[in-house]
């Protein structure tokens, strides 16, 4: 059946003429859904947290399950910047430039206490909180946050994008970021070494 026949059927019988399943949704929900489901992070590893970020992407925790395994080297192809580690005074302008190069809409997760507040390095060299440089949507605590906490932060971000809450929070905040703080939930898995046959 050609397209013109289908159109003719539609004119004649209305929606009954459609032979496939279909769904309707608000355009906004569809957009949010697609944004939440393909959130590509930029590679922006700085320090210790970067190792945990890579561990989250690796086999054991497998970020690929959530459509996020492609860490993009080019900020133009990334939606999410995970600031993983301490930001030095020398790095701050670079960070801002990379953030500016990312396409809208873009999200920022501040991973670890150093990125969030300077952490234990309260001195001349470290920017005391990356929210002075870029707007932060989700703060993940920990030094470093384990993969579980990072994934918790990512899920929170996904959820807030999906519900549209994130943009509402952004509009309400002064800094321009949603500023959600999640809990540290490391150590959820058993600490015993995996016995052979499991791994």
């Amino acid at each position: 059946m050609g397209v013109s026949d289908q159109v003719a059927d539609l004119r004649e019988h209305g929606l009954k003429a459609i032979q496939h399943n279909f769904m309707t949704a608000k355009l906004e929900s569809l957009v949010n859904w697609s944004r939440a489901r393909s959130c590509w992070p930029a590679t922006f590893g700085l320090a210790c947290c970067a190792i945990e970020m890579m561990a989250t992407g690796a086999a054991h925790y497998d970020l690929a399950r959530y459509g996020m395994e492609v860490f993009r080297a080019s900020p133009r192809q990334a939606d999410l910047m995970i600031v993983a580690g301490r930001v030095s005074q020398k790095m701050a302008p670079v960070l801002r430039q990379i953030y500016d190069q990312m396409m809208e809409p873009k999200w920022v997760i501040s991973m670890g206490v150093c990125a969030s507040s300077g952490g234990m390095f309260n001195n001349y060299a470290i920017v005391q909180g990356v929210d002075q440089v870029v707007p932060v949507d989700v703060y993940a605590p920990g030094c470093p946050p384990g993969p579980e906490t990072l994934m918790h932060a990512i899920f929170t971000l996904h959820q807030e994008i999906l519900s549209g809450e994130l943009l509402a929070r952004r509009a309400a905040s002064e800094s321009g970021g949603a500023g959600i703080a999640v809990q540290q939930i490391d150590g959820q898995t058993a600490t015993a070494t995996i016995r052979r046959g499991h791994g």
């Binding site: 309260n122 001195n123 001349y124 060299a125």
Partner: peptide, 14 residues
């Protein structure tokens, strides 16, 4: 020169 003793550590109140 940051590691000189008369250079402040740059600690800011939390």
């Amino acid at each position: 020169y940051p590691l000189r003793k008369d250079y402040d550590s740059g600690r800011i109140p939390v």
